[in-house]
């Protein structure tokens, strides 16, 4: 089954990012394809490489990069939402792509499932 994920909250403030990540890993383990992760609202903050949490905490942006590289899944950030929140190509993690909502429309329509994580 092909699954698209919409993530609408930023890192740390909400558990949404962690749930999305754990769900995606479990879906892949069960043989499904995660087509893409699309970031909207504060979710776009997930792809900032400026993230620098304390050593004993998870680093959410490097975790997304590792996920992207391991499974070849792109992490798309909505361009309009990104511009509002200081996200541009200069701060973008590996595996992150800034794109338009047309990309999201494709993700929402071409997959068997779209699942949303947010607040």
């Amino acid at each position: 089954m092909n699954i698209g994920i919409l993530l609408k909250e930023g890192p740390y403030n909400h558990q949404a990012t962690d749930t999305a990540y754990n769900f995606a890993e479990a879906a892949i383990k069960r043989g499904h394809t995660i087509d893409a992760i699309f970031l909207y609202n504060d979710g776009v903050l997930n792809v900032s490489k400026l993230m620098d949490p304390p050593q004993d905490d998870r680093n959410i942006s490097t975790r997304w990069t590792a996920f992207s590289q391991k499974y070849g899944v792109k992490i798309y950030a909505c361009v309009v939402a990104s511009k509002r929140r200081s996200i541009n190509d200069d701060v973008l993690i590996e595996g992150g792509v800034i794109t338009g909502l047309g990309t999201f429309t494709d993700i929402a329509t071409r997959n068997d499932r779209l699942i949303t994580f947010g607040d």
Partner: peptide
């Protein structure tokens, strides 16, 4: 909160895609 406004922005774009 911005949720409804950004929701509207998304709807306006998706509306151009014949869904």
């Amino acid at each position: 909160t911005i949720y409804t406004y950004e929701g509207l922005e998304m709807i306006l774009i998706m509306a151009t895609y014949d869904q």
